[in-house]
């Protein structure tokens, strides 16, 4: 009994330095290395915080309002967009669709995107209502096109636009497929993704997008949600607006008035 106790109390031999196992060492080295890499990649050189002369992009948050009940289908917006942005023939950054509807059947057409207006139409059914719906990029807040871009060419700006960096775009077309509104296309000249920019080269100078500028019926309106008295902000804040395909939860920033259930 005594013997065992004295054994236990016997001074332990000086503890040898705990050898670091190879496995443990490698794991720690990897952790450290990974941390260094994260640190390096997360420390980018801050660029010049400047978008355009006299323009602060944190002071704006744009939104677009389309009153479908006013549209006469003249296609001025489509022509203006083409002229303003040099959109290649056969492709459209904005287009107008015509819906001819009866309770039993419906017909949708958009000849050349509405570029030359619309011709008279005969339908095999007797239409009970018909209307035009201008469409374009919805500049969604939770946009799938930006999420799928593998090279960071698609992005959302702080003033609320979705843009494409043609220099980085590799033309893979994922975003073209991801967009539920069909707003993007691959340009046949640059072979990069192209889309509506809400005429960023105009709005940063205080101008309206070209389609809004030429719309003869004020169907199309462009506004700034950061301005309390903005007519578009007031219409969205107080009116009953809807968006295209709300079930996709993309939070479009193009708002519609008088949208019909037939419109997708």
């Amino acid at each position: 009994m005594d013997e065992t106790e004295s054994d236990a109390r016997a001074p332990a031999p000086p503890p040898a330095p705990e050898p670091v196992g190879r496995r443990e060492f490698l794991a720690n080295a990897l952790r450290l290395g990974g941390g260094v890499l994260v640190f390096l990649s997360g420390a980018p050189a801050l660029g010049e915080d400047h978008v355009a002369e006299g323009y602060d992009w944190t002071q704006h948050r744009y939104a677009y309002l389309i009153d479908t009940e006013k549209c006469i289908g003249c296609g001025s917006c489509v022509r203006a967009c083409k002229a303003e942005n040099g959109v290649p023939d056969g492709f459209f950054r904005t287009w107008v669709e015509r819906y001819v509807v009866s309770p039993e059947a419906s017909h949708v057409d958009s000849p050349k995107g509405g570029l030359d207006g619309f011709p008279p139409i005969q339908t095999p059914f007797t239409p009970t209502k018909s209307f035009f719906v201008p469409k374009m990029c919805n500049h969604c807040k939770e946009t799938p096109c930006v999420q799928v871009c593998p090279v960071g060419a698609s992005y959302r700006t702080q003033d609320g636009l979705v843009l494409v960096d043609a220099e980085r775009c590799i033309g893979c077309g994922y975003c073209v497929q991801a967009c539920p509104y069909g707003s993007r296309f691959l340009s046949p000249t640059t072979h990069t993704a192209e889309k509506c920019t809400w005429c960023y080269h105009r709005v940063t100078k205080g101008l309206k997008p070209a389609c809004v500028e030429v719309c003869p019926t004020a169907t199309r309106q462009f506004g700034d949600m950061r301005r309390e008295d903005d007519p578009v902000r007031l219409a969205i804040a107080h009116g009953r607006v809807s968006v295209l395909q709300p079930h996709l939860l993309t939070e479009p920033q193009c708002f519609y008035l008088g949208l019909d259930k037939e419109v997708r």
């Binding site: 660029g47 010049e48 400047h50 978008v51 355009a52 323009y55 992009w57 960071g152 060419a153 698609s154 992005y155 700006t157 843009l163 960096d165 220099e167 980085r168 920019t197 960023y200 080269h201 940063t204």
Partner: peptide
């Protein structure tokens, strides 16, 4: 995750 210079280029 994008090239900020492109914003000014687009403007």
């Amino acid at each position: 995750p994008y090239r900020f210079d492109n914003v000014a280029e687009q403007a």
